[in-house]
Structures are given as structure tokens and as C-alpha cells.
Design a protein around this nucleic acid. Structure first.
Lengths: 149, 149
DNA sequence: TATTGTTATACTCTATAACTATA
DNA sequence: TATAGTTATAGAGTATAACAATA
């Protein structure tokens, strides 16, 4: 008998395990927050610090610190923005690209392993149910945002 | 068509939303880390700081800091351990108990809302699939622990 | 000798506010 | 005047190492 609370507990457990798994497999010089920034660069290409702040939902000051660290460990470089001399384009270095490519492969492998052996209609239904849960969570979070203006 | 990666993405999204939802609904003086400690006390009753460190997978020094903050905001009290004068029993205050009771109700309501309307056999299957995913994640994490001794 | 908790020190992530250079 | 990024300052979470009191 699966109760809603058991489902909820499992979701929390899975959340913690995913973060744990990520944190443990990070190469030298990377942390979860820095990796999150690299991930955005990997998906979007060279990006200004303002955009990174928005994407990560974090203050511009915080991005300065993260980029400082990532520059020191040679995962990214700051380049001048061609059209706006105030702005910086944060860019993955070659080493950064290699790291993120490897991470994407790992991620794909892990994802496949997690659901290996599930029939395709079952996978379909799981995807559907998770969509539902995510949408409702989103509504819960938004409701609270409105309450505290 | 739900691919393994889409499932994985959804799980990460859900993880972030759950943490967000929790963080936003915390009363004054509480943070996610402090709430985690309170949750353990709520489940287990009065507990030594060593046990808390183990339960939270965190250093004893860190527990000292969390308990200091929770004592200052009157959610917990330090009491002498009856049988061991080295140890402290961290105990929920009345206010701490009320807070955690309310949080447990909220949690139950949220959980029910997330899966409301799902047929019971579908709920069953979702629970089953999440169990499977959690177990495989656990294995992934353990595998990495062994590799780095 | 081993364990419990604390002091000392340090790093990371995070925020707000004030400032500089550019738009 | 508004925007991009930085300096200054501060709080929270985390860790290791050294130390006191007790077992």
C-alpha cells in the first residue's frame, strides 16, 4: 500500500541521493554551486554574469565569487562582451568543455541505469506521473510566493 | 515519449522544488539545516549531539553550532545526560514540539495534494517505481564510496 | 585510552549596500 | 538615469585539529 506520504518520503530520499551522488563525483576544484554554473554555460554557451545570476537565481555578487573560483581553477575565462564594455562573457575553457562533456555522458549513463528494465509503457506512465507531481509542486511554491510579497 | 534523461531531469526538478517549498515556509529563526535537526528530534526524541552528528552525517562541531542557534531561538534545550556526564541530551521545547507538529501536518497535506486524484493502483505502481529508482541510486552512491577509500 | 563536546581556524555559499565604469 | 560588475561586510553551513572533562 503506497501512501502519499511514502511517495513524498521517497521523493525526498531520491533528491538527497542525487545531490550526494553529484557531490561525490566532482573533480578537484568543483563544488555543487560551481558545477551548476558550468552546467548553464554548457547548455547556453558564453553568458554574461547578469544572465548567470538570473539563471541560477542568485545575486550578481555571488556570481562574481563563483566565476573567480572557476577562473582560478581554469574551468572558465572572462572575455569582453563585444557590444557592451560593461559586461563580461563567461566562457568555458577547453578543459571546462571536456569536463562538462564527461559529466553529461555520466549523467546519461546514470539516468539509463536508474530505469533500466522498465517496459516502455511503464516508463511513459512514470514520466507522466512525475510531470503531474512537478506541476503541483510548482503551484504550491508559487502560492507561497504570492502570500509573502 | 519519456526518455530516461527526461525522468532524471524531472527528479532533479522535483528535488529542487521540494527544497524550495520547504525553505520558503520556514518560521523565523529556522533554516533548512536547523529544521533537519529538529526533524530528527521530532522522530527520535531527546538525542545526544554525537547521535545527531551521525544521523545528519555532519561533524560534531557542526552540531554544536546548529544546537547553539536552535537554543538561542528557543526551539531546543540542552539537558544533562542522566547516565553520562560528558554527553548532552538535546530536547525539543514546547515551542519546538508545536512547530514540528504543525510542520508534520503541512507535510501530510502537501503530500496528499501532490498525488490527489491518482487511482490507487497507479499510486501503487508509482511507489514501486520510485522504490526501484531509489535503490539503484543508493547502489550508485555506494559504488563511488568504495572507489574512494 | 577512548569518547563527548567545545574552542580555534578556515573555506564556501549566500545576501545587501555602496561604488566604478559604461550605456 | 540605469545597468554590469566589483569591493566591503556579514551570516550560515561546513570541515579539521587541538583540548577539556569524563568514561
Amino acid at each position: 500500500m503506497a501512501t502519499p506520504e511514502q511517495i513524498f518520503d521517497r521523493l525526498i530520499e531520491i533528491a538527497l541521493l542525487i545531490e550526494d551522488d553529484l557531490a561525490r563525483s566532482l573533480p578537484d576544484g568543483l563544488t555543487v554551486a560551481r558545477t551548476h554554473l558550468l552546467w548553464v554555460l554548457h547548455q547556453s554557451g558564453p553568458t554574461t554574469q547578469q544572465s548567470l545570476a538570473t539563471a541560477l537565481q542568485v545575486s550578481p555578487r555571488n556570481v562574481t565569487g563563483l566565476v573567480d573560483a572557476l577562473e582560478a581553477s581554469r574551468f572558465v575565462e572572462r572575455r569582453p562582451h563585444p557590444g557592451d564594455r560593461r559586461a563580461t562573457l563567461v566562457t568555458l575553457t577547453e578543459s571546462g568543455v571536456r569536463t562538462m562533456d564527461a559529466m553529461e555522458r555520466d549523467r546519461r549513463d546514470s539516468a539509463a541505469e536508474l530505469v533500466a528494465g522498465l517496459e516502455s509503457d511503464r516508463l511513459e506512465q512514470l514520466g507522466h506521473d512525475l510531470d503531474l507531481v512537478a506541476a503541483r509542486l510548482q503551484k504550491l511554491v508559487e502560492a507561497q510566493i504570492r502570500v509573502v510579497p
